[in-house]
């Protein structure tokens, strides 16, 4: 067990770990609400309890799971199922690119594992906490990340299992999924402190609804790309140049 832990997890600073645990407690409630919703949704469409449990435990990606459910019900070809999940998950590719410099010192197994457990809220909290850190890849940062990820993982798994076992008993009209939406809004709001980000978010918001009927969830990717391009276009050249100079110094 210790051996496995050392293989998958880098050395963690205890203070960082504790801070990571703490900072995820409130978002954890929202993650749990989201987990219950996903669990209920899986059994409500008719998936058996064992398959639903397996799916939530290993796939561990709420938005992708919900997106492919109707496809699985209709027996859609597997490549379509997978591509849909891939496109819903494209944001994680972006997150990984933004976070990679904090993890490049790890072994490949540790990086693979850290990536697998990285969620939306944890990612945002981490970059808000360490985005301006002069040194990247410290045991404190790893401690924070894994503390965060542990709460995220546990609240998701416990809640989605509860949702699966509750099945049809959980009322859908309570708006439990709204808790998850609110948590993500809380994560986005502090990011909106610069004009380019604001521009990008507005473009993404409009397009994400306008493209909702494009198949395979392609609209998601289109709206993110367009938003990023809008932000880059709006950003005055001198701002990015000075930021670059600061980083190089």
């Amino acid at each position: 067990m210790t051996k496995l832990r050392e293989t998958l997890v880098p050395p963690l600073d205890p203070a960082g770990w504790r801070e990571g645990l703490r900072s995820m407690v409130t978002p954890g409630i929202a993650i749990a609400a989201w987990g219950v919703v996903t669990g209920v949704a899986m059994v409500k469409v008719g998936m058996s309890v064992p398959l639903a449990l397996l799916m939530t435990i290993v796939v561990f990606a709420g938005s992708a799971q919900l997106a492919v459910l109707p496809l699985l019900v209709s027996g859609a070809p597997l490549p379509i199922v997978w591509v849909t999940a891939l496109l819903v998950n494209v944001r994680f590719v972006i997150f990984a690119a933004a976070m990679r410099s904090y993890f490049s010192q790890l072994t490949w197994k540790q990086r693979l594992f850290a990536g697998y457990i990285n969620g939306d809220v944890g990612f945002a909290l981490f970059l808000m906490r360490f985005g301006g850190a002069p040194e990247r890849g410290t045991t404190f940062q790893w401690g924070y990340f894994f503390g965060n990820a542990t709460v995220n993982w546990a609240s998701w798994q416990v809640a989605s299992i509860v949702g699966i076992l509750l099945g049809g008993l959980a009322p859908t009209e309570w708006g439990l999924e709204l808790a998850a939406v609110l948590a993500l809004v809380a994560v986005v709001v502090p990011m909106l402190n610069r004009v380019p980000v604001l521009a990008g978010v507005v473009v993404t918001a409009v397009l994400s609804v306008a493209t909702i009927h494009i198949p395979l969830k392609l609209g998601l990717v289109i709206s993110v790309l367009a938003g990023v391009i809008a932000a880059v276009v709006v950003a005055p050249a001198h701002v990015s140049k000075s930021a670059h100079a600061k980083r190089a110094a």
Partner: peptide
């Protein structure tokens, strides 16, 4: 069908989340 779908979805999770880390 669902088992194969789940296997592929798990790979999708790992590939996207770990992508640039690798």
């Amino acid at each position: 069908y669902v088992l194969v779908a789940i296997a592929g979805l798990t790979i999708v999770t790992i590939v996207t989340r770990s992508s640039f880390f690798m």
